[in-house]
């Protein structure tokens, strides 16, 4: 029996662990999707179960413009990543900045809607069951937009410092996966809150 360490046949590294970032991001997205699923289920389950007003149709206004902003930011980030792969740093920077602006515009939209509801109409998270589910679902999404914007801004800072180069395209792809997820979740939240729930 061989008790000393055995040396396995040596070989050139043929495997490529560079996919691990993408795999990990997809796993994170799966986990986040599970969290959102629970909040969406709670929202749908509690639709119309509030014992007191106001009802969704009394307070909600459909944020069409801001939704268009967020969804189009998926396009800009897609083309930004494409430019980076081609090594066009300047157009990458412009498109990246456009993505951040569109995301920030969406966040601003959520902000003024919440301001109106909380300060003008007195509708808060503790008003009724609808308030609880609405603010937590939309707030959870807004939280993800904030996290996304922070990550995008870090990349923007590095771009302005001239540190982002074509070889970072894979990492940018991984980050853009997250941003696409944030946009896709908004489609679900929008449908549930503003179309079905209203």
């Amino acid at each position: 029996m061989n008790a000393t360490s055995m040396t396995m046949t040596e070989a050139r590294l043929e495997w490529n662990p560079s996919d691990r970032g993408r795999v990990a991001m997809l796993c994170l997205i799966a986990a986040e999707a599970a969290i959102f699923t629970i909040f969406v289920v709670a929202y749908v389950f509690y639709l119309g179960k509030s014992l007191t007003g106001p009802l969704p149709k009394d307070v909600l206004s459909v944020p069409i413009v801001y939704t268009i902003c967020l969804l189009s930011s998926s396009l800009t980030i897609h083309f930004a990543a494409k430019s980076l792969r081609r090594g066009e740093i300047k157009s990458f920077g412009v498109l990246w900045l456009a993505t951040i602006t569109l995301g920030a515009a969406f966040l601003y939209g959520t902000g003024i809607e919440w301001y109106r509801m909380i300060y003008k109409e007195g509708f808060t998270i503790s008003t009724n069951l609808f308030g609880t589910t609405y603010y937590s679902l939309v707030g959870l999404h807004a939280f993800h937009v904030v996290v996304g914007l922070l990550s995008l801004s870090i990349v923007m800072v590095f771009t302005l410092l001239g540190r982002v180069r074509a070889e970072h395209a894979e990492r940018i792809d991984v980050l853009s996966l997250y941003w696409h997820f944030v946009d896709a979740v908004w489609i679900v939240v929008f449908t549930v809150v503003y179309v079905i729930g209203r």
Binding site: C27, A30, A31, E32, A34, I35, F36, T37, I38, F39, A42, Y46, I125, S126, N128, L129, T132, T133, S136, L140
Partner: peptide
């Protein structure tokens, strides 16, 4: 990934109930 995340969501809801006056 698929099971602990729902627990995380439920714990967030419980925190909202306990601290922000939610009604989940």
């Amino acid at each position: 990934i698929l099971a602990v995340s729902p627990l995380t969501a439920a714990q967030i809801m419980l925190l909202i109930d306990r601290y922000l006056g939610g009604h989940f």
